[in-house]
Design a protein around this nucleic acid. Sequence first.
DNA 1: CGGCAATTTGAAAACGTTTTCAATTAAATC
DNA 2: GATTTAATTGAAAACGTTTTCAAATTGCCG
Lengths: 333, 333
Amino acid sequence: MDKQTITIYDVAREASVSMATVSRVVNGNANVKPATRKKVLDVIEKLDYRPNAVARGLASKKTTTVGVIVPDVTNMYFASLARGIDDVATMYKYNIILTNSDSNSEKEIKVLNTLLSKQVDGIVFMGNEITEKLREEFKRTKTPIVLAGSVDDEGDNPSVNIDYVAAVQEEVKNLIDRGNKRVAFVCGPLDQAINGKYRLKGYKQALKSAGIAYDDKLVFETDDTYKTGTLLQPALMAVNATAAMVTDDELAAGIMNGMSDADVKVPEQFEIITSNDTKLTEMVRPKMSSITQPLYDIGAVSMRLLTKLMNNEPVDEKNVLLPYGLMKRESTK
Amino acid sequence: MDKQTITIYDVAREASVSMATVSRVVNGNANVKPATRKKVLDVIEKLDYRPNAVARGLASKKTTTVGVIVPDVTNMYFASLARGIDDVATMYKYNIILTNSDSNSEKEIKVLNTLLSKQVDGIVFMGNEITEKLREEFKRTKTPIVLAGSVDDEGDNPSVNIDYVAAVQEEVKNLIDRGNKRVAFVCGPLDQAINGKYRLKGYKQALKSAGIAYDDKLVFETDDTYKTGTLLQPALMAVNATAAMVTDDELAAGIMNGMSDADVKVPEQFEIITSNDTKLTEMVRPKMSSITQPLYDIGAVSMRLLTKLMNNEPVDEKNVLLPYGLMKRESTK
DNA sequence: CGGCAATTTGAAAACGTTTTCAATTAAATC
DNA sequence: GATTTAATTGAAAACGTTTTCAAATTGCCG
């Protein structure tokens, strides 16, 4: 009645060899005579034997599974990273356990611990606000953890990112050069280092080199959602902004639609630049100009880095910066 | 040097009880004297003991992990389902191994087997073209499998969907009632049952009850991508269509933008209705009218159904149909 | 054909839990 | 206080692999 599983032992008996030998052929170990290998392979075929990965994991202390912690798969930015991660994971014979944290620190800690209890061989973490508590949990484990599209200068985890400050600085400079005296900076939570420490810094630097005074009325800290974006038009107008550097595509789409709905012409009366270059930028009208990030690659490279860490291979650069670009579309002049 | 793990045995020794007792308190078994429980709990705390889920899985034959097979997480439709799945999985203390199949039958089979070898307790499958080969693999295992947002009338797997034929029929009827004589049906691959057997059926039924002859020049079989959508305008005009029922939101967005770019006014000159009600429908201008599907809920209900199956609880309805709706936005008159 | 090295094999001990079943202890009854 | 019954405990056998180490076999050379 019960799913009668056939074990390595059954194969061994049927092929009249030892379990060890079966294990060897299953794992492609070279030290087995061709004739024996064939005999075993035939029995495996005949019995339709499939190794039990759990038992394997217990005996070998490797699960060929990695954990992926993501704020929300429903967000295109993270979905793209996740896809990159899964693809190279598959390439290296790993599977991923995917968990959504909602950027909630407690959830992150909880899920991190359940991943560790499941003995994942490594973890890819996404999410930018890394609390002291979480950092401690990171340090507690010997399981390698890499940050993907996420920064944390207090900790010392390997990471894969782009140079956020340079990218933002460059784009804001362009905006200023085009005559915008008052450029708004619309971002997600500032306590996330990626916004508060990096992007904001780029924004300030651009201002500074243009000799424009920093005005904190021009920075809008939001929750990164489309909805919030649609509501921002009045506030943006109230501070006489004529352009905005936005840190999230959905947020930017919201702002742009809010502008259009209020009959503010983009880009004629208001320019918008966004940051993540998800496919949304192309779907919206006008199409949004964006900093381009190799999203898929950030995920892919993170996972590749993780494989090295898991195999104790040397890594040349712990904190890799992938190249970014600037894609001009229709939301800028 | 090595991550010196502390085992249940260490706890047992330190608390001077047996492993069995420690196991009991860890698993919340009631048969243990309060005083003993406290003593053990204290030692667990002190030693920072964390149960090894792999060993647990081997001994108990339960991994509290379920597999999720999805064509592509990067697609909002599936991302939403996946999110619903993960949330209720978490609620029931499961984790999900997420794998992308690219709707590739070979990959699906391969990944299904690796999931099974990892001893997942159940599987949620998404993807509509279920080949005979895949169906056989489904039948081979006793591990419960539920189809989420995916149909297969040849097999007998539990599933969660909406009534696609009724939904499409209703929307196409509305289109016709509004005066459209030539309504196009733009869909993904027709060999996917959801398109070829269900939605197309609804389309035909609507035509029939309106006394309009079916014209296969009006059905456009595509690959479901935004890009393809943008290219469809000439073909649609060529057959004198004045409206389209589209089976995918990204595809619909592409068509709409293609129309706009060719100066065909939506909805005045061309009406568009889409099928998945992802948040994209709201982000695009004009906003797209859509069949509304409770995406998150389809995922959530699938997972809930799976938990019942995994616990051998009785299920009242194997093939659940969730309610759909019709959301009028700006792409229809 | 004997001796030695290299190649193949197998026995058995991990791996860290859960679970069964019997033994022990505590509680209840008269 | 002696029995009976119920509640707690522990010993040890799974669970299905990998891995170590020694034994057996094979091949090679002179």
